[in-house]
Design a binder for these strands. Structure first.
Length: 421
RNA sequence: CGGGCUGUGGCGCAGAUGGUAGCGCGCUUCGUUCGGGACGAAGAGGCCGUGGGUUCAAAUCCCGCCAGCCCGACCA
């Protein structure tokens, strides 16, 4: 992608009323654009990040046997009445359609997935099974806040598992719990598995909490064994001895990027979803649900991975692996050499399958290009200039590092391929 | 939903005591520049969030509404 083709550009001025780091940097860098409180457009660069996050989540969910589906976001009233949640979910966006039929925009999908799976699963032999989707969720939050961290429309992965017994649910729950840690690690996030309220369904649930000052949640974490608990249900306080080991409990703010629940038989019961067992009788169906906020993840990554100049994307989710910066010159011959060399580099890398953003703008100062590269945060910056070409080289600088080095023109493509892999 | 702050070109802001809108950035054109947000010159761009009121006259004063942000409450 050539920078000159991007219609969504960076802004020299940070937005005034975006207080949170993720909102400020993502808006300033042209990754997202705000339509209303808690409602954002994902611009070309931002969408690339979101799509990479989704791709990782898909891989991870497929690894635990999740089968991807896509359910409607527009949901009729009836199933909500079945579960008696039409009036009890206060963030439900309700609307009236043709013929005065009532609908809600899905804030979660138990009401859709349960009858869906019920339509196909009749026997214990069909269990366990697990379905997930990545979709925009709608929640009429009283107060949207903190950029991508708490929106009214936001992208979420929600998976639902179905089991013939509580024991089977528990086994699967633990499998997913472990996979979640792996998933977050792949995005450079250290998400702490935290005990949290189980709501009406079970004794407790688990949240995956990323420590950041902008988090909405307050959690207590052991500095040794990393056992953690949300303040909602905490029986410990800052400075206590960990109940699991002899470590110390630390109070910290964190943002919840994932949440896993054992739903027990609550929803299956509501819909009369049972399966035929070996002995011909009907058995209850146990469910688990497993959520991850896709857009919130993106915001969280920015919160934990940035410096005063801008974002530092982990390689796994960066919109582009490489940001090529070509620096012009007053000397026409030099300028053309640089331009040609940058074109060659761009073409070679692109052909090698490396994702490259090339700041090909002419007449833009080096300083401005560097500032933009820092703001946009691609993992690797390659500078093509008179200076570097004088040594038949390209300047190599990683965003997360302060040092730069020269790599020869002959080596550069293979070096980058290795880096980007 | 309670409380607070703020709405003035695309972005960031200034516009005491009311008199018909200005700066920086950005944008356009020309020229000079070219390794950390360059310089000069000439331009374009605004019913001052919105509705009402007060007044000869409202960005400015008063009331309502809307929107955004922040704190709190809430968060299956």
């Amino acid at each position: 992608m050539k920078y000159s083709h991007l219609f969504a550009k960076t802004n020299k001025m940070a937005p005034a009323d975006a207080d949170s780091t993720n909102a400020r940097l993502l808006i300033q860098g042209g990754f997202v654009n705000q339509l209303a409180a808690g409602i954002y457009t994902f611009l070309p660069l931002g969408l690339r990040v979101l799509n990479k996050i989704k791709a990782i989540v898909r891989e991870e969910m497929n690894m635990v046997g999740g089968q991807e589906v896509l359910m409607p976001a527009l949901i009729p009233k009836a199933p909500w009445e079945t579960t008696k949640r039409w009036d009890s979910i206060d963030v439900l966006y309700k609307l009236t359609g043709a013929g005065d039929k009532e609908f809600a925009l899905g804030p979660t999908h138990e009401e859709v997935v349960t009858p869906l799976v019920q339509a196909f699963v009749k026997s214990y032999k069909d269990l366990p099974c697990s379905a997930y989707q990545i979709q925009d969720k709608f929640r009429n939050e009283a107060r949207a806040k903190s950029g991508l961290l708490r929106g009214r429309e936001f992208s979420m992965k929600d998976m639902y598992s179905f089991h013939r017994s509580e024991a089977d649910l528990e086994t699967y729950y633990d499998t997913v719990a472990e996979q979640y840690t792996h998933l977050f690690n792949r995005m450079g996030l250290d998400a702490i598995k935290t005990e949290a309220s189980g709501g009406v369904f079970s004794k407790y649930s688990h949240e995956y909490q990323v420590v950041t000052p902008y988090g909405e949640d307050l959690i207590y974490v052991c500095d040794k064994c990393r056992w953690a608990v949300n303040r909602e249900i905490a029986e410990v306080k800052n400075g206590d001895i960990c109940p699991k080991c002899d470590g110390k409990i630390i109070e910290t703010k964190a943002i919840e990027v994932g949440n896993i629940f054992k739903l027990s038989t609550r929803f299956a019961d509501d819909f009369g979803f049972t399966v035929t067992l070996e002995d011909g009788t009907q058995g209850k169906v146990w469910m688990g649900c497993y959520g991850i906020g896709m857009s919130r993840l993106m915001g969280s990554i920015v919160e934990v991975s940035h410096d005063e100049r801008g974002i530092i994307w982990p390689k796994s989710v960066a919109p582009f692996a490489v940001h090529v910066v070509s620096i012009g010159s007053k000397d026409v011959a030099v300028h053309e050499r640089v331009q040609q060399s940058a074109t060659d580099l761009y073409d070679q890398l692109t052909r090698a399958g490396v994702e490259v953003l090339w700041d090909d703008r002419v007449g833009v100062s080096a300083g401005e290009k560097f500032a933009d590269a820092d703001l946009l945060g691609m993992p690797l910056r390659l500078v093509v200039s008179e200076k570097s070409l004088a040594q038949s080289s390209i300047e190599w600088k990683e965003r997360a590092s302060t040092e730069s080095k020269l790599v020869t023109l002959t080596d550069i493509v293979s070096y980058v391929e290795t880096f980007a892999r």
